[in-house]
Each structure stands twice: as structure tokens, then as C-alpha cells.
Amino acid sequence: MKIAQIAPLMESVPPRMYGGTERVVSYLTEELVRQGHDVTLFASGDSVTQAELVACAPCALRLDPSVADPIPYYMLMLDEVRTRADEFDVLHFHVDPLHYPLFRPIRERTVTTLHGRQDLPDLPALYRRFGDMPLVSISDDQRRPIAHCNFVATIHHGLPLSLHRPTFAPTGGYLAFLGRICPEKRPDLAIAIARAAGLPLKIAAKIDKVDRAYFHETIEPLLAGGGVELVGEINETEKTRFLGDALAMLFPIDWPEPFGLAMIEAMACGTPVLAFRRGSVPEIVEDGVTGRIVDTVEQAIAALPEVLALDRQAVRRGFEARFSAARMAEDHGRLYQLITAQIPPAQVGPLPLRAAAVDVRRAVDFPLAPTGLQFNGNSLANDGVPG
């Protein structure tokens, strides 16, 4: 199958440091190539891939000081994809809604993975206008604000099994926080939990320009209290040791997390996760197996001893069973088959999220994956708009 993967240009694929979407696009692209697909990656020129690379900017836009406005680069990329569209069976977009007007006429050969939160006030009008564009969610929870949109699958992220070596006897003696320093990730709560537990905390995190005021006003004063080390951004190799040596990873988020790649990165290292019940967390963490899910700081402090006592080999096994890159690529392969099969429009109107799995199996004659992928019936060709 000939597949185009259209990636964001802000980071390379894979990114040098932080960059969740670009990292997932990389894992998916490489695994699709390994599984025998003919893949073309539209991305920045400093990307590294076994697929055919179409460089749409010299390097990652975030790292190029000469770039003042990213939009022209995206317009050039989308025009290049449009020019070559007939070469591909499937066009898989990872650039939010930028391509909707241009590719709507061939939407039956496209799919768009939504990587961000969908509860923002500016989005409803967009989805009313483009309610026929086929969408993939990265968690079921991500769908809730726009549940009537044209979702064709939920596919959880995955990592290569060899990416992180698990550590079953950690020696670091600290708790870990990995991600971004921003209000929704709540590093302040991670600090509070660690201090209440009497354990050191290491924070490996990126600070975006928009979050610098939050860092200086809220987080920086907390660092003066001792017991907290700000490591900064780390790369993939450093991440294995950082997470593997940790006793547990704290994930005290305060927003509707669409997926939370850091959770499965920790699990890959055998490190249990203590997470707040927000967004995708209940879909990702197996409570009592790969971590604990709590609702408050007080519950987190009380649950921490149990988290530290979890079997790290079981944590790794949970990761391998549910979140491998191979499973993620196989799920996408099944979705691409559905797209190329060109299922006719449903005659009975939009179907409930779970109810149409049997119809899809009959239509394309393959079993659904036990985890990660849930199809939403024949809505791929449904022209209805969300309510």
C-alpha cells in the first residue's frame, strides 16, 4: 500500500528533544515501512527515516532562528502533497485542520489524526463546516467535546519494544516528572507530592516561550525548597535512564490529556505511573498493575507506597501487551484497508461509537485488534455534520 504521512514541521521526525506528535509519526512511519508498506514522509529536511522523505522545510521550524512565521512553510508542504496526491492510496495527516479545505474533495482517501485537546471554544464552527472529514482519535476521551464528528477509529500510541530497556531494580531513589513545564501538567503538584513523601523529585521538562512566565512566577520559587532537581529537556537515550532509575513517574495533570506519551514511556522502562484521573489516563494506566489513578494530592500521597511496591516486570509486560509500535502500525494498516475498500455510505445514518464494529469486520474481513483500535463503522463516508 502506498501511504503518505504528513507531519508537523515545528520539530523533525523524530524530534531531537521534546516533541510527542513528531515522535509518534516517526514510530508509525518506520514500523509501516518494516511491515512492507511504501511510505512517503512529508516533514522537515532534518528528519531521519527509512521512508521516502520529502523535505518541506530545511530543518525543524522551532530550531530555525530565521523562521518568523511557520504558515508559509505549511502552505508549501500542503501544495506539494496536493500535487502528488494521486500517487498514494491513503493520505494520513497529522497537522490539525490546516488541510481540510484543500483535501475535502478527496476526503475518502484521507484520514486525520487529532493529536491535541478538542474542547477549545474555536473548534465547534470548524467541525460543523468540515464534519465529513474522517478523523482518528488517540483516546476515546479525546472525542468527548466533538463526539458527533466523523471519527473512524481510536488508535492508542505505541513505542518500539526495543526503544527503552526496562530497569527492574532502580538505583536512583527519586520520583520523576517528564513533559512540559506548564499549568496543565502541574509540576507544582508533583513537587508537593514528592515533598510530602520525603522523596527527591527530578523534573525533565521543556519550557516553551508561552510558559516562561508561569515557570518564573510559580515553579522557580518552589525549587528553592530543596529536594527538586530541574534537569531540563532530555533526548530519547537520556530518557531511558532517567525514567528507568526512577522509583515512579508522577503525572498530576489538570487538563483533558489526549493521550500522554510519557505514561507509556515510563511503563516501557518498567516504571509505574501515579496519575490523576483526567483525560485519557483511565484508558492508559491499568490501576493497580502499571500504576495508580487518583483524584487529589492527598490520595496521591496515600497511594504512593503502593505504587512503589508494584511489580516492575508486570509494568513492562503491560506496556508490551498494549502499547507496541507494531500494534499501532497494524491498527493503522487495518484502518487503511477500510479506507481503500471505499465502504459505501451507511444507509442507517450515524452509528454509535461501539455499535458498528461488526459491520466493519464484515465489510473488510479482518478482526479488530484487542487493544488500541476501535472502529466506528461506516462513518468514513458519512456526510453528516456534528450536532
Rank of each mutant, 00 (worst) to 15 (best):
V289F: 04
V307S: 09
Y18I: 10
V228S: 00
V294H: 15
A341V: 07
M267S: 01
H164P: 06
L223Q: 03
L161I: 05
L98V: 06
I284K: 03
F323C: 07
L32N: 11
V294R: 13
F103T: 11
V294C: 13
E236G: 04
V385L: 10
V111A: 14
F242K: 01
F93V: 05
E306G: 10
Q337V: 12
L178S: 04
G198S: 08
G349H: 03
Y174K: 05
R165Y: 11
E238T: 00
M17T: 04
K2C: 15
L98D: 07
D211Q: 09
A268V: 07
P282G: 12
V24E: 06
M10A: 08
S26T: 06
V13A: 13
V90G: 15
G270T: 01
G20P: 12
H94V: 11
L353H: 13
L351D: 12
Q374P: 14
S44H: 05
A196C: 09
G158V: 01
P58V: 14
D287F: 00
L175T: 08
E87F: 03
V95N: 15
E22K: 02
V24G: 02
V281C: 13
D79P: 07
D254A: 13
T29E: 15
P145S: 07
R82F: 15
A369S: 14
A125Y: 09
H156W: 13
P367R: 08
A300H: 05
V90F: 07
Y27N: 15
R195S: 08
D69L: 00
A325S: 14
Q118P: 03
G131E: 05
D46P: 02
G158W: 09
A57F: 03
H157V: 05
R362C: 12
P183T: 04
A363V: 09
Q142M: 11
V81A: 04
Q347P: 11
S12F: 01
I6A: 05
D132C: 06
S379L: 13
I203N: 06
T167Y: 09
F42C: 13
L310T: 03
G349Q: 09
Y18W: 07
M249C: 13
A196K: 15
T167P: 06
Q337H: 05
D46L: 00
S47V: 07
R317I: 11
P65L: 04
P166I: 13
K185V: 00
D311I: 02
I6G: 15
E238R: 01
